[in-house]
Design a protein around this nucleic acid. Structure first.
Length: 434
RNA sequence: GGAGAAAUACCCAAGUGGUGAAGGGGCUCCCCUGCUAAGGGAGUAGGGCGUGAAAGCGUCGCGAGGGUUCAAAUCCCUCUUUCUCCGCCA
């Protein structure tokens, strides 16, 4: 959510900056200003009436004690009560409408971002070079099937398209990745958190996925009276909501969290021919990093998160590039995002394995996540940041494709071997199912 | 899933319709004392919103949301959480 003060003081700046993000918010802004004005005048009116009500209310017992006639006062009080009730109803409506529009506005992009979409993304740095094969490389779907790492057919049998099953060495490799990531984060001082995989509605609003992506998650309860829960689309949703409606102390910032969860997404209509296999499914595994920081420290934290994600990919020995997203390519909640992309030979291109973002105070304002500034004693909004560290389901295809040998076996990245009992190469003989 | 009890500030806790939400502990400051302990005194209800240049003023806050009433911590309804008991269960 954006700061209403900024919108009031400088609506044109807000409109201009949102335009860089591809959002023409002229209409919303004028609607917000109108509703805000209406809201404030209603508050002023009701508060004035309530002040009178309170004042008179205190006199009533005094008058009664003195044996005075309270009838005339009572009549006035009844009027006041009715008037307050009506105005309160109106106020509630206006307030709800105001909030609704506010919630739909995306975050302002940082000023240094290139405007426009993907085509303006800027490559910041690369590491290593694309893998060159002395033979015709296979794609990860064939490799995983032949090696018995992934059971696509039975995944579909169990749950339909967009689901797969990790089996044998595949499951162990995926598990090894999770171990490698989590151990690294622990060494960096992050707290490991295991969160519920089903979340309440509010969490989606705090992280900014709702109202826009309400249709893109899986809902558990759809009946009106039941509290609706949804399957989390990313652990960010849970971790960012962890401290909603809290006032943290300045000392406990920054808070650094990491969580592993499966992520559930409908991904309706987004399947493409070049995204076979495990690149886009309805369920995938991800380790997510989240930080809560002081506002003045969030840039620093952002660089830390980017550095951590890069280090993980480096550790696996991959060629990757780090890309600074143009304003329009950043998601709605985020002020800035860097993607880390690795090369997947069969897709003849780069695929995102980590996306690191700074939401600044956008999510904090939606979730009333604050800290008490020691110097002033006043609460202020924190900054929230998140980054994948990393999405394992995208990494496994990259490993098998980049590390494949001519005979279709796959070399295990060195940093994972200790989790796999020292196995260095995954071969066909290790397949233990048909 | 069923029955009962509870939720008031940092902690404990009083408060069953009416003028500032008691009291205690803790904490902060001050006094006394050569120092410590003890003692004495004062302060300690946050946060949101509105208004204002500011000081301030107003309003809403007793788990949350509704309602009854001129007036609600107090009465009614719904929900959440915690505890006790029962049932079911990996």
């Amino acid at each position: 959510m954006l700061d209403i003060k900024l919108i009031k003081e400088n609506p044109q700046e807000v409109i201009d900056r949102l335009l860089a993000k591809g959002k023409d918010a002229k209409q919303e802004i004028s609607e917000i200003l109108r509703l805000d004005g209406e809201r404030r005048s209603l508050i002023l009116e009701t508060d004035t009436l309530k002040a009178e009500q309170n004042k008179v209310s205190k006199q009533i017992p005094v008058m009664k004690k003195a044996g005075e006639d309270t009838m005339p006062v009572m009549t006035r009080m009844k009027e006041l009560a009715d008037e307050i009730k009506n105005k309160d109803i109106k106020l509630r409506e206006v307030d709800a409408a105001f909030r609704e529009v506010m919630l739909t506005l995306p975050n302002l992009p940082d000023k240094d971002l290139a405007p426009g979409g993907k085509e303006n993304n800027q490559e910041l740095r690369t590491f290593g070079a694309p893998h060159v094969f002395a033979f015709e490389p296979q794609n990860h779907v064939d490799l995983c099937t032949n090696l018995g790492l992934i059971d696509y057919e039975r995944g579909t049998k169990l749950s339909g398209s967009g689901f797969w099953i990790y089996r044998g060495m595949g499951a162990r490799l995926e598990w090894a990745l999770l171990n490698y990531f989590i151990e690294t984060h622990l060494a960096d001082g992050y707290e490991l958190v295991m969160v519920p995989h089903m979340l309440g509605m509010e969490t989606g609003y705090v992280s900014g996925q709702f109202p826009k992506f309400k249709e893109d998650v899986y809902w558990i309860n759809t009946e009106e009276d039941e509290r609706s829960l949804f399957m989390l689309p990313t652990a960010e949703t849970a971790l960012v909501s962890l401290h909603m409606n809290e006032i943290l102390t300045e000392k406990e910032l920054p808070r650094k969290y990491v969580a592993y969860t499966p992520c559930f997404r409908k991904e309706a209509g987004s399947h493409r021919a070049d995204e076979r296999g495990m690149v886009r499914g309805h369920q995938f595994n991800k380790v997510e990093m989240v930080q809560y920081t002081l506002p003045e420290k969030s840039d620093e934290a952002f660089e830390e998160l980017v550095g951590k994600a890069e280090a993980l990919v480096k550790g696996l020995g991959f060629h990757f590039r780090t890309v600074k997203l143009a304003a329009e390519d950043c998601s709605a909640s985020m002020a800035r995002t860097y993607d880390i992309e690795i090369h997947i030979p069969s897709m003849n291109g780069y695929k995102e394995v980590s996306s690191v973002s700074n939401a600044r105070d956008y999510q904090a304002r939606r979730g009333a996540i604050r800290f008490r500034r020691e110097a002033t004693g006043k609460p202020e909004l924190v900054h929230t940041l998140n980054g994948s560290g990393l999405a394992t389901s995208r990494i496994l295809p990259a490993i098998v494709e980049q590390n494949q040998l001519k005979d279709g076996s796959v070399v295990v990245p060195e940093c994972l071997r200790k989790y796999l009992g020292g196995i260095e190469v995954i071969t066909k003989d290790m397949k233990n199912w048909q």
